[in-house]
Design a protein around this nucleic acid. Structure first.
Lengths: 130, 130
DNA sequence: ACGACTGCATTAGTTATCTAATGCAGTTTA
DNA sequence: TAAACTGCATTAGATAACTAATGCAGTCGT
């Protein structure tokens, strides 16, 4: 769980993103509990409320369910929800890119080339990390 | 110059984006003056300072140059600077998309498919608007 | 029952961000 | 030279966002 407090993206979002990724990749599986608010808070050096806010986010997405006094658990459909959320994130980035291209009157072929380059780098780094 | 005051993206950025796009597409050409702070302020129903902030942004990018008492003018290299900025915007969106895909362990082929779909829509809408 | 663990609600403070009000300083033109 | 235009600097205010402090309420194991 890598959190950068100096980043301009809010801590609670970093936590939510990390958990979402962990669920999507099966690190946390349906039915399993997430680290408790306080445990996660200690690990990330942050206030439990900040973790709660992150978990709230995930609960609203239907990725986890909370049971007062017991814990927060990955929902049955959690894995697929996480993967769908990831796809939405990807789509959002792509659409932003396309909008930027349209605004500047950029040719589709140029965008295609750029995408090819970026995706190739993704594959490279993906191979490195495995 | 379409500005949405209800948007969560700051007005001064909306203005900067719009001007950048206009320069990139040749609506404003090198050497030509931009609308004065106050003129633009009236058009967008906003305080001149907000326009100034937008123009500051553009000046820092080297897209325009300002002459106290005379006006703000599109820089000689303004067009290419605007196009480069657009490319950076596109690249940023693409990288965000790729990061999101990596976090969720998504396959490159899936990302490629998604990109194809989004780009096709871009081409469709581009043809409509012409 | 009691202690130790859970999630949660309320409140508050801090900070950053965005926008506006106002007045100064330079340029141009009649 | 005076009026009308330019950009710009300073200040202030308002708002929203993020994080933390604190205490309550539920569950579980001994």
């Amino acid at each position: 769980m890598n959190i950068d407090p100096g980043s301009h993206v809010p801590i609670y979002l970093q936590i939510a993103d990390a958990v979402r990724a962990a669920v999507a990749t099966g690190v946390y599986q349906p039915g399993e509990p997430l680290p408790s608010l306080r445990a996660m808070a200690v690990e990330v050096h942050v206030n439990p409320n900040t973790v709660q806010r992150a978990y709230d986010e995930l609960q609203q997405e239907g990725l986890v369910g909370s049971q007062r006094g017991r814990g927060v658990f990955v929902a049955d459909r959690g894995t697929s929800v996480a993967r769908l959320a990831a796809e939405v994130g990807v789509r959002r980035g792509l659409e932003e890119a396309v909008r930027a291209a349209q605004r500047a009157g950029m040719e589709p072929s140029q965008v295609r080339d750029l995408f090819g380059a970026v995706l190739d780098r993704m594959i490279q780094e993906g191979r490195q990390s495995s």
